[in-house]
Computed example of a mutant assay.
Amino acid sequence: MDIHGIPIGSIWTAIRWFPRFFLSKYFPRERLAALQYVDLAPRNESATLNLGEAASFELWLQIINLSPFEVELDRAEFEFHYAGATLKSSVLKKQTFLPGQITLIQVSNIVPDGLANQIVRNRAINFSDMYGALSGHIEFNCKLYPFPRQIAHLAGVRPRIINENMRASVLRAE
């Protein structure tokens, strides 16, 4: 039997019709979590750190659902580590991903003044060309069962820094 001409989407569609018992044996929670690809968005600026008066950070993550099931992002918590500061954010908006769907989600939050000052000082003492890292925990739901996805350590995040000079001048004046 020649299966080269069959699109993978039709195979996934056929698999979804199997009984839940068989599907849960073939797709345990760990496998479903591994089939959710999470990384920084590959184009433009995926990370921005604004150190102005109202300091904030913004990350764009790309999620690809490689499983044959419709998956719902239930909630997520992220930590962005940069220049000795840990910046936290949560995503509470539920989103549904179809099989094979590629989606961008925004992770953002304010940066307290103390952490923004710490980032400016560390960038001045060390070198300004620093890398950050992202870690997190995501909870997904699907028709088989809910499952978690850990993001252990996405290293090599180089954020675009905005308004660093403004905050540095305020720190020098103090």
Rank of each mutant, 00 (worst) to 15 (best):
T103D: 01
E77N: 13
Y37W: 11
R29L: 01
K93Q: 12
E45G: 05
S56G: 12
L73K: 01
E58C: 14
E58H: 15
Q36P: 01
N65Q: 10
Q36R: 00
K88M: 07
F78R: 03
T96W: 02
K93T: 11
A33G: 14
L59T: 11
T48K: 15
D39Q: 13
G84P: 04
A33S: 15
R31H: 06
E53I: 14
G100N: 03
Q106H: 07
P28G: 04
E77M: 11
S108C: 04
N44Y: 12
N65V: 05
R75Q: 12
A34D: 15
L40C: 10
A55K: 02
E53H: 14
L51Q: 05
E77C: 09
A47V: 12
Q62D: 09
L104T: 13
P68T: 09
F57T: 04
G84Q: 06
P28S: 09
L66F: 06
L49G: 02
I102G: 04
R31T: 14
A85S: 15
F27N: 09
L87N: 04
L66H: 13
S67C: 02
I63M: 07
Q101V: 00
E70N: 06
I102F: 02
R43T: 14
Y82D: 06
L32M: 13
L51M: 05
L40W: 03
L66T: 02
A34Q: 14
S46W: 09
V71H: 04
D39K: 12
T48D: 05
L87D: 06
H81K: 11
L51E: 07
E79L: 12
L92S: 14
V107R: 03
P68G: 10
F57V: 06
G100M: 11
I64L: 14
F97L: 15
E45R: 12
A54W: 06
L66I: 00
N65F: 05
K93H: 05
K94L: 00
R75V: 07
K88Q: 12
P68S: 09
S46G: 14
D39A: 13
L66K: 15
E79H: 12
I63L: 14
S46Y: 13
A33P: 03
K88W: 01
E72N: 06
V38A: 07
K88C: 06
P28V: 03
E53C: 02
G100V: 08
Q106W: 00
P99Y: 05
F78M: 02
S67V: 01
A55L: 00
L104S: 10
P42F: 10
E45W: 07
N50A: 10
P68N: 11
I102T: 14
G84E: 08
P99D: 07
G100H: 09
A83Y: 07
L40R: 08
W60H: 15
E58A: 13
V91I: 14
I64T: 15
Q36D: 01
Q62H: 10
Q62Y: 00
L73S: 01
L73A: 01
R29F: 00
E79W: 02
P42E: 12
R31E: 11
P42W: 03
L40G: 03
P99I: 03
L66G: 12
S46V: 02
G100Y: 13
Q101D: 08
F80G: 07
A76Y: 04
P42I: 01
